[in-house]
């Protein structure tokens, strides 16, 4: 008598699984990682290594010794958190900050809620905000190497201290300078922001690299463009209104889109499956909330940027959004 397997339908499965999706996200992040390594050199490699090691280790240790459950670091989700966190730190930030951030991201934000799929907040974003309020000086010391050669030089070279474009603008406005003068003095240009923009988090370095990742994620159908586009349009819209109202006091829409981690956040962090809404309508509302809060913080808040706060706040609304936003059902219009 032959042995036949009997189980209910369906008898086939699409090839994509959790690990392959996480792998796709890592591939999508790779252009940004490569660019940051090229320009920030050893210090960036150190941060990346520290983040990956401590994230994986934290998850493995918690699963093994606290939860007494199978270790699931092979699914790649901790690695994604690690790379995102590394890209969210200022280049040259001390390695122990990265360790604390990683332990917080995985240990507190992810595992205390039950691990993958259970967390309310995006671990990397929550860790970044946690570090920003805990270690403000380390987290806003935007050191940058004088050149690519010095970034990869084995002997320590003095780093040039810098500031993010948003920080420069914020400071300039406080000093009572008009915007066009600030832009002119600092030599800001859109082309530079698109290609290589030194200063800021490692992941904000190159808009083009991030956009390449976005295209890859869309092509592989890992994410839908809804959330990301909703954020972009809201930021363009809100800053557009303010810019038209007073162009010398409020930064312009394109500048706001290209700076302060908007691309990194909108492509890779706000689209995190676990902490974003399920339905299309939900994603539009979620993106609108993020865009609006980002702009309000930038124009009226104490912090020059605001993307991470906005994502974190909107993460908290996701269960509520999911409760009220559903996709249209067949035959129930």
């Amino acid at each position: 008598m032959e042995q036949l397997v009997v189980s209910p339908s369906p008898h086939l499965h699409a090839r994509a699984n959790t690990a392959s999706i996480m792998r796709d996200v890592l591939i999508a992040l790779s252009p940004a990682v490569v660019v940051s390594l090229v320009f920030y050199g050893w210090s960036e490699l150190l941060l990346l290594g520290v983040c990956v090691l401590s994230c994986l280790l934290t998850e493995a240790l918690i699963e093994k010794y606290l939860m007494k459950a199978p270790v699931t670091i092979a699914d790649g989700s901790a690695a994604v958190t690690a790379v995102l966190l590394a890209l969210n730190l200022p280049a040259g930030c001390p390695w122990w900050v990265a360790v604390i951030g990683s332990v917080f991201a995985i240990g507190v934000v992810k595992m205390t809620f039950g691990g993958l799929g259970q967390n309310i907040f995006n671990p990397a974003i929550a860790a970044r905000v946690f570090l920003l309020v805990s270690f403000p000086s380390q987290m806003t010391a935007w050191a940058r190497p004088a050149s690519i050669a010095s970034a990869w030089s084995l002997s320590p070279v003095d780093a040039v201290s810098g500031a993010t474009p948003l920080g420069v603008v914020s400071e300039g406005l406080r000093a009572g300078l008009p915007l066009d003068q600030i832009f002119a003095e600092n030599g800001f240009s859109y082309a530079q922001m698109l290609l290589v923009n030194l200063g800021g988090s490692a992941g904000e370095l190159s808009a083009v690299a991030l956009l390449a990742g976005f295209v890859y994620l869309l092509a592989r159908k890992v994410i839908k463009p809804t959330t990301t586009l909703s954020i972009w349009l809201t930021i363009l819209g809100v800053s557009g209104i303010f810019y038209l109202y007073n162009p010398s006091a409020y930064t312009d829409p394109v500048f706001n889109l290209l700076t302060g981690g908007v691309l990194l956040g909108s492509i890779f962090m706000a689209t995190d499956y676990v902490t974003s809404p399920m339905s299309r309508t939900g994603c539009i509302i979620f993106g609108f909330g993020i865009g609006l809060q980002t702009m309000l913080i930038r124009y009226f808040g104490a912090y020059p940027e605001g993307m991470s706060f906005a994502i974190l706040l909107m993460n908290a609304f996701v269960p509520l959004i999911n409760r009220y936003c559903h996709q249209p059902k067949y035959g129930r219009a």
Binding site: G117, Y273, K329, Y330
Partner: peptide
């Protein structure tokens, strides 16, 4: 092709809802 793989946790990707022809 057909043997089931080990279940993991739901990652709330919403792919099931996008795939459902009844919405």
């Amino acid at each position: 092709q057909t043997l089931r793989r080990e279940e993991g946790p739901c990652i709330r990707c919403g792919k099931c809802a996008q795939a459902c022809p009844m919405g």
